[in-house]
């Protein structure tokens, strides 16, 4: 009994401890696509500003924007722009959502370097991934079966690709699923008839990037908006950012922050 009483007392003591008032807390919620950018930049930011404590939760874009509307977060992450309906709802609650573009998300379609195909239309890509096209000769290649490589459905890259290139249609069931950008690139390098897609950061000389609708996938074309398999990533705040939140957002969009975003496989703003 005595031991238990001691344990209980210790628990109450530890749980009751309240911390110093000098720290500033920032809560970030929302999109899992933006999460890696937020996480990597938050780490560096806290190294430079130890007095700021950042906590990052997932939940998806809808959740992030809802949290801004509810006032339960400082920053709401979203991989899509806020909808009119959400703006109306926010305004009715006296919330004024402000968008901050923190990075760009671009996806390159890649084939084996030995493949003669160097340009595809979005429709052709969709046909390949949904199973309508299954031989390279059908789309101007030198023949041979197309080996379709995709990502598992938990992947943010898959989500983006599925939405932007496939209009949310199902990927053919016999597609080879890989768990990372790296794994897709490696498989495409080794398999002559393969086609895959990777975050722009993983486009190396070992694979061949394919032009989509006549536009080459590059940081410049993503930034200029010409390349179609790309989208901006947002962090939302209620009104203009203030205090520590502003300092953090300034850091995210700084060249140092953008370098970190690129390290995570995204395209920086500058």
């Amino acid at each position: 009994m005595k031991n238990i009483r001691k344990l209980f007392l210790a628990a109450v003591l530890i749980l009751g401890l309240t911390g110093s008032a000098f720290t500033e807390d920032i809560t970030i919620k929302g999109s899992t696509t933006v999460y890696p950018v937020a996480q990597a930049t938050a780490e560096k930011f806290m190294d430079m500003h130890p007095e700021v404590r950042i906590s990052i939760q997932g939940g998806g874009s809808g959740f992030g924007i809802a949290a801004i509307i509810d006032g339960t977060t400082d920053i709401g992450n979203a991989s899509r722009p806020i909808k009119d309906k959400e703006i109306k709802k926010a305004l009715s609650k006296g919330i004024d959502p402000k968008a901050h573009v923190v990075a760009l998300d671009g996806i390159a379609v890649v084939v084996n370097p030995s493949n003669s195909v160097s340009a595809l239309t979005k429709q052709q890509i969709k046909d390949i991934y949904t199973g309508k096209t299954s031989n390279w000769s059908e789309i101007g290649g030198s023949g041979g079966r197309i080996v379709v490589i995709s990502r598992d459905s938990a992947s943010g890259t898959f989500e983006t690709f599925n939405k932007l290139a496939l209009d949310k249609e199902r990927v053919r069931p016999d597609a080879l699923l890989q768990a990372s950008n790296q794994a897709v690139a490696t498989t495409v390098t080794k398999t002559p008839g393969a086609i895959g897609y990777v975050g722009l950061g993983y486009l190396t000389s070992k694979v061949k990037g394919v032009d989509v609708n006549g536009v080459e996938a590059s940081k410049d074309t993503v930034r200029s908006g010409e390349y179609s398999l790309a989208r901006p990533l947002f962090m939302y705040t209620d009104g203009p950012a203030k205090g520590a939140v502003k300092k953090y957002l300034d850091f995210v969009t700084s060249s140092e922050g953008q370098r970190l975003a690129e390290k995570q496989g995204y395209v920086g703003l500058k």
Partner: peptide, 16 residues
């Protein structure tokens, strides 16, 4: 209660 990423330890029971 949970958060995906946070550095250090909680200061009070009102933190995630």
């Amino acid at each position: 209660a949970a958060t995906l990423y946070k550095r250090g330890y909680p200061n009070s029971i009102f933190e995630e």
